[in-house]
């Protein structure tokens, strides 16, 4: 867009990079220092021998923790809150239905963060050791075999493939930040009245990402490569949702009683929603 000045792009890139660093859960140096701490064979076996539902619950908790940081990242991006969330929630929801029923109708605002898991997968490349094919999980570096008892080997191996692939692009922190923001803005907001505003912000973020890539002297074509990853990310997340519904059909009570509310709000539109706030 010709209406965006270089100063504006620079400002947006700085805002997004700063937001990323403030909310990144772990510092890269911390993660890199720990790569030698892989799970021992007996620890791997202990994860493998956990009942399926216990491992699912553990992973749901870990994903939810990571997502809480992504939500905070989103909130700090200039323009994100103004788009719809706070304004829309209060204008559309609260007066009409009352606060309690607003919380029940999670669909009102969860669309905006439907791609938060995609951002978790993007951020995962910081915590990924491509040499050993391991990822930081529950205090140490874990290979795909740690997740065996989940019963979704295909999803796990796709997630590890994605991690390895993204690592091979050697993205810097500012590139990860801008790409995360771009992924977040690709969320499907089917209900949103101000769709054009979202598209405009996404275009700006894409330009800021391009600006950062040029500034970092990255090779041509890397932007296209990154944009292509968005569909891979979406496919991973869809697969996660499928696995979750299969799991839920076997263990409905475990999900209802023991899975974090935030996780249920984001990944099961047909789940019972969180309890209303008094």
């Amino acid at each position: 867009s010709p209406t965006v000045s270089m100063a504006e792009l620079e400002h947006l890139a700085q805002n997004i990079s700063k937001s990323h660093m403030e909310t990144c859960q772990y510092l890269r140096e911390e993660l890199q220092q720990m790569t030698w701490q892989a799970f021992l064979q007996e620890e791997v076996e202990s994860y493998q021998s956990k009942p399926r539902e216990v491992m699912w619950q553990l992973c749901a908790i870990k994903i939810t923790e990571a997502i809480q940081y992504v939500v905070e990242f989103a909130k700090r991006i200039d323009g994100f809150m103004e788009l719809s969330l706070r304004g829309d929630v209060t204008q559309r929801g609260a007066p009409r239905f009352g606060w309690g029923s607003l919380v029940c109708s999670g669909a009102l605002y969860q669309d905006d963060l439907s791609s938060s898991l995609e951002v978790v997968f993007v951020r995962m490349c910081r915590a990924f050791d491509p040499q050993n094919n391991t990822v930081y999980f529950d205090g140490k570096y874990a290979g795909p075999d740690v997740f065996k008892s989940l019963g979704c080997d295909d999803l796990i191996s796709s997630v590890f493939d994605f991690g390895k692939n993204l690592c091979s692009m050697h993205l810097s922190e500012d590139e990860i930040a801008l790409f995360s923001a771009f992924v977040l803005m690709s969320a499907d907001r089917s209900w949103l009245q101000e769709k054009l505003k979202v598209e405009k912000l996404q275009q700006k973020i894409q330009l800021a990402l391009q600006h950062v890539l040029q500034k970092n002297h990255r090779e041509d074509g890397i932007l296209t490569k990154l944009i292509c990853k968005v569909s891979t990310l979406r496919a991973l997340c869809n697969r996660h949702t499928e696995k979750l519904s299969a799991f839920r059909s076997l263990y409905p009570d475990i999900v209802r009683a023991h899975f974090p509310p935030l996780y249920k709000e984001l990944f099961g539109s047909d789940f019972e929603q969180a309890m209303p706030i008094e």
């Binding site: 660093m21 403030e22 909310t23 990144c24 859960q25 510092l27 809480q68 940081y69 939500v71 905070e72 909130k75 809150m81 969330l85 706070r86 929630v89 607003l102 919380v103 999670g106 605002y109 969860q110 963060l113 974090p260 509310p261 935030l262 709000e265 984001l266 969180a274 706030i277």
Partner: peptide
């Protein structure tokens, strides 16, 4: 146990 709405409306939640 947090919900999405609480996270969104809270001033500050998760930062390093």
């Amino acid at each position: 146990k947090v919900t999405l709405l609480q996270l969104l409306l809270d001033h500050k939640n998760n930062e390093r």
